[in-house]
Computed example of a mutant assay.
Amino acid sequence: MASVLGIPVAQASLNLPNPINVDAGPLGKIGVQGVASAMGFWQDNPQGTPGTLGAKYAGATITNGMVIVQKSSGLVQFYAQAGAYGFPTLAASLAGANPTSAINDFGALPVAYLKIAPSSNYSVEIGKLPTLIGAEGGFTYQNINVERGLLWDMEPIVSRGIQFNASAGPVSASLSLNDGYYSNRYNVLSGIVTYAINGANTVSFYADGPLGKVRTSANNAAYSAIGTVSQIYGLEYEYSSGPWMIEPYFQYMHTPKSVQAGVPHSFDNYGGSILLNYSYNSDWSMGARVEYLEVGGPLGYGLNLHSVASTLTDLPADSHAWSLTITPTYQAGDFFARAELSYVTASTPTGTGFAGRSGLAKNQVRGIVETGLLF
C-alpha cells in the first residue's frame, strides 16, 4: 500500500515513468520526473464566491505542473516536489492551481524532505511530509479518481515534522511527530501499521491526534485548526492481484469540545469507502469509488456547529452523504487522458445544503476530463 512517498495511498491508475537519472556531481545520481496536466469540468450546482472558478457551471484549470527531484539510494536521500497543483474534491468548491488556492497553503514546494536510511528496513525523514492518514494521495495523478473523496476532505494533506519508518518481515510501520494541518506547532502524532498477509492482501491501521494545545489562528493553521485539534482513526484492507485492486476502508474522527478552537460541543464524523480499479490492458483501466459519510453534531445542537463541521467536510452538521465516482483512464507512454463522472447526495437538516449558489442544494453532479503528460 505504501507509495514512493511512504504514504498509504491506493494504487493509482496512472503510472509515472522511471526517473531520468542525472549526474549531480557530489550528490551522485539523482532522478527527475514531472507531471503536467489540466482538467475541464461541468457541474450542475456550482459552489463558491461569484467570479471564482468554483462558481462556474463549466470551466478549466491546471491540476498539476510539478517537477520531482529525488535521490533514492545511499545513506542520505532526499525528495522534492515543486510547482503548481490543485485539490479538486467532492462536495467542495473547485479551485484552480494558482496563488490564491492550494499553493498558498503549502507553497511552491509542497513536499520536500531529507531521508536518512541506514538500511532498507529503517529510515528517518524530516521536512514537509505527505500525510500517513487515509487511502488517497494529495495530488490528482496519485489517485484512481481525479477528485478526492468525502473522507479525504477530513484528513491532513501535508505536515511538517519528522517521521520514523521501520519494517520486519510482513510488518511495516511509520510514526510521525508533526504539525498536523500545517499549524506550525509540532505536537501532533501520526502513525500507521501495515501487515502483509500475503502477496495479494494487506491490512493497515492508522491514527492521528494532538498531544497538547494547537494553534488556531489563520496564519498558523493553513487549512483547518479544527482538524488539528481532532483525532482520526482508520482501518484499511487492500486486495491487489492481476487486473484488480479493491480497497475498502473505514474512518472515524472525533473532535473534542475546545474553547480555543471555537468548538462548543464535541462531535464525531465517520464513514466508509470502497476504492476499485480494474486494468483491462496496459493502456486502459476503470476506477471507481463509493462512499458514505456521517457528519457529526447530534440533533438539538448540531445546527450551531454548521460552520465548524463545514471546515472539515464542506457538509453541514447532522448530515449524511453518499457519493459515487467512476473514472475510466487511458495511458500510453507519457500521455494520459481520463474522464470522470461523480454524484454526491446528502440528507441535511431543514434549511441547509452543501451546493448551489444558494448553498441549499443537496445533490451535485460533476463531469471532468483530465489530460496531460507524465515524464
Rank of each mutant, 00 (worst) to 15 (best):
N15E: 12
S159R: 02
V9F: 13
Y280F: 15
E147L: 09
Y252L: 15
G59F: 03
G302I: 01
Q163R: 14
M1W: 06
V214N: 12
P328C: 09
Y252F: 08
S319L: 12
P156W: 09
V4T: 10
A173D: 06
T325D: 05
A222Y: 06
F164S: 06
L189H: 15
F139Y: 08
G302L: 01
Y113K: 03
T52I: 04
V229R: 13
G74A: 11
T345A: 03
G127V: 02
M245Y: 11
T100P: 02
E370C: 12
S241R: 00
L341F: 11
Q231D: 15
L315H: 01
R215S: 04
G234K: 03
P210Y: 04
L114Y: 10
S230T: 01
G333T: 09
S217H: 08
Q260D: 10
S310R: 12
N98K: 00
A92N: 12
S319V: 13
Y252Q: 05
S204G: 07
P50F: 10
V171N: 04
P26M: 05
I103D: 09
S358W: 13
V365K: 15
S319C: 15
A112Q: 13
G134E: 01
Q364T: 08
A117H: 07
N121G: 09
G54M: 13
I326Y: 09
S319N: 09
K362T: 10
S3N: 13
A361E: 10
W322G: 08
P328S: 09
D179M: 12
N121V: 09
G209M: 03
G134Y: 02
T352F: 13
T52C: 01
L299D: 12
G242L: 02
P8D: 01
S172G: 07
N220K: 09
Q251P: 00
G297R: 03
G191I: 00
S172L: 11
N121C: 11
Y292V: 00
L312T: 10
E294Y: 12
Q70G: 08
F335H: 11
L94T: 07
D179G: 08
T52G: 03
T228C: 05
L373H: 06
G28C: 15
D153L: 14
V124L: 14
G65D: 14
P264S: 12
I20N: 15
S217N: 11
I232K: 03
L324F: 07
A288L: 03
